[in-house]
Amino acid sequence: MTIQDLRFKLQRFRLLTSTLHPSPFTLHLPPFTLTLAALAISTLFPEKSYAMHISEGILPLNWAALWFAVAMPFVAYGIWRLKTVSKTDLSFKPLVGLMAAAVFIISCMPIPVPTAGTSSHPCGTAISGILVGPTISILISAVALLIQALFLAHGGLSTWGANIVSMGVIGSFAGYGVFKLMRGVKLNLTISAFFAGLLADWATYLTTSVELASGIRGDAPFMPLVTKIIIAFIPTQLPLGILEGFITAGMVSLLLKKRPDLLVRFGVIKAGEVKV
């Protein structure tokens, strides 16, 4: 069959079908909008809270207090940093507001994982860590976790500190660190953001495993228990980490396309990298 034959057949097919019905794909929505819409729809059907956060009362009081003590200096520094940066840059607060809402939604969005038969959620701390910095990202996580513990039966007040450390501190610093490291060796922005999201998610669950094992083990040996918990998390978190990587890469790429000046101003990319 020649090219001309193909072209002729296509024209004939177009003539035949154009009178029957309009093309089903006439809505030219950008792919990212479609993806966000699907993500939003998926949040509308929760049956219960499907969290990776450590639930209320799981950790003994001494361990809960320890993690609280570890988390609070980071939160306090986050508040100070937010105040300082907002004074000098008026465009920073809207970005923080956007990130806070995004982290809150992402971190209470239950996603069923068919490979595991369980549900869990991404964290969103990699995106906020990259865009607004890890310390402010910790503050954002703390607020999101507090609202979830208070009103959504998601996590707990006594385990708030432990959840801030795993999701906020480790998630944000892991995402930020991986991103900076990969950008430092001149890797592509999207790829760096993908791996930042992926590793931030896995690091969060790794920390949750350590927190849980250290809190509940009693006299039992630590390493076998922590390994057992990590292995139990793997079927769910392996694919979810990949999803978190895509979300992070998508968000960073979108901002690069729409507001590269913001990324330059907040030190995510260098001015020379922006295509004019």
């Binding site: 499907y50 639930s55 799981i58 369980t118 513990a149 509940i216 009693g218 228990l225 918990i229 769910t236």
Partner: peptide
């Protein structure tokens, strides 16, 4: 399709004598 908080966190904690409390 329960969450990993039930299938992993609470399950393992229960094995080691810790149970989740009501929020």
């Amino acid at each position: 399709w329960g969450g990993v908080d039930e299938s992993v966190v609470e399950k393992v904690a229960k094995e080691y004598g810790r149970e989740a409390r009501e929020p």
